[in-house]
């Protein structure tokens, strides 16, 4: 296990370095580069900007600038928001809960529904259910998340009036039930694509397991089909799904950004868009780096979880 961990951690460090180089490159693409903040200020003359460049060390070789920027990232000094001067990490932290709540609920829905659909599709292979699920999954993957959200709002908020059209809670009545009421539609909207992905993978994984010798043995022992399915098949089929959960993180974050926009959900996605339209580049860069780091560590967690459950992985 220790060797496995060391191995993974080395890979992660390399990955973090590459991600930070890509991030630094984008930072320097931004008009005005790291000085964009001052380009907005009409009181700044060209001489002032030159002097600032000197002061901030922007005349140094590019690799020295990169190392300096990366070192500040590592130390947690991610700069300050242009809007209110708050440290970028604090701003991000303030919006993290809403996004994680949305992503967590969505993932739970996607796993529950996707697993059920996938297993049923595999045990009833080529049945009507299986065909409908297959085609349905492909259509679900093709629906733009924001459009699905708009249709949902039109039907359930505007026509039926059952669910709120946006926000995380009603001002003045912030109960758990109220949160849940607001959470229903955005989390289902965000879950749709992932239900499709989970069900497809789960179907394949179940089919892989169903034909293994240990399932035949279980059947030969005279176990009931239900017991075989629950105990032997599902457990083993779910194993590769842990890795899938990690792999889905980038697309989950992408979906969350879009969903948050449609439902005015006060998470990191909305913060990202607000910061872009405001020209608040430190927060934009911070969120870009933060999302990548979240993805990398999410995948590490998934790998560790698989290694804990499955000895074949950590011993190979």
């Amino acid at each position: 296990m220790l060797r496995f961990l060391l191995n993974r951690i080395t890979q992660i460090v390399v990955l973090l370095i590459i991600v930070s180089i890509i991030g630094f490159f984008i930072l320097n693409l931004i008009p005005g580069g790291p000085l964009a903040q001052y380009a907005l200020d009409p009181g700044m003359t060209q001489d002032d900007i030159e002097r600032l460049k000197e002061q901030l060390g922007l005349n140094r070789p590019i690799y020295v600038q990169y190392l300096d920027w990366a070192w500040r990232l590592v130390r947690g000094d991610w700069g300050h928001s242009f809007r209110d001067g708050a440290p970028v990490l604090d701003v991000i932290g303030g919006h993290m809960f809403a996004t994680l709540l949305l992503m967590g609920t969505s993932t739970a829905i996607a796993i529950a529904v996707g697993t059920w659909v996938g297993i049923r599709g595999a045990t009833h292979r080529y049945s009507t259910f299986d065909h409908v699920a297959t085609i349905g999954a492909m259509i679900a993957l093709s629906i733009p998340t924001f459009w699905f959200g708009l249709v949902g709002i039109y039907i359930f908020s505007l026509q039926l009036g059952w669910l709120p059209a946006g926000n995380m809670y009603t001002v003045g009545e912030e109960s758990v039930l109220d949160y849940l009421h607001h959470l229903i539609m955005p989390s289902i909207v965000l879950a749709l694509v992932h239900i499709a992905v989970w069900s497809r993978y789960m179907r394949t994984a179940t089919l892989d397991v169903i034909n293994q010798d240990f399932v035949k043995t279980a059947r030969a022992k005279g176990l009931s089909e239900r017991r075989i399915l629950m105990k032997h098949v599902v457990g083993n089929a779910l194993l590769p799904m842990i890795t899938l959960a990690g792999m889905q993180l980038p697309s989950l974050l992408t979906g969350a950004l879009v969903t948050e926009t449609v439902f005015t959900w006060p998470g990191m996605g909305r913060l990202f868009l607000d910061s872009i339209s405001y020209g608040d580049y430190p927060v934009v860069m911070g969120l870009l780096m933060f999302s990548a780091i979240l993805v990398i560590f999410g995948n590490l967690l998934a790998d560790i979880a698989v290694a804990i459950v499955d000895p074949r992985i950590r011993l190979s």
């Binding site: 992408t254 950004l257 870009l288």
Partner: peptide
Amino acid sequence: MRTVDGFLAFPSIFLLLALAAAL
């Protein structure tokens, strides 16, 4: 291939929007 991994770590819409905001 590690560069490929690096690009894959960014959620595509964050990367897209950051680039779109810059260019």
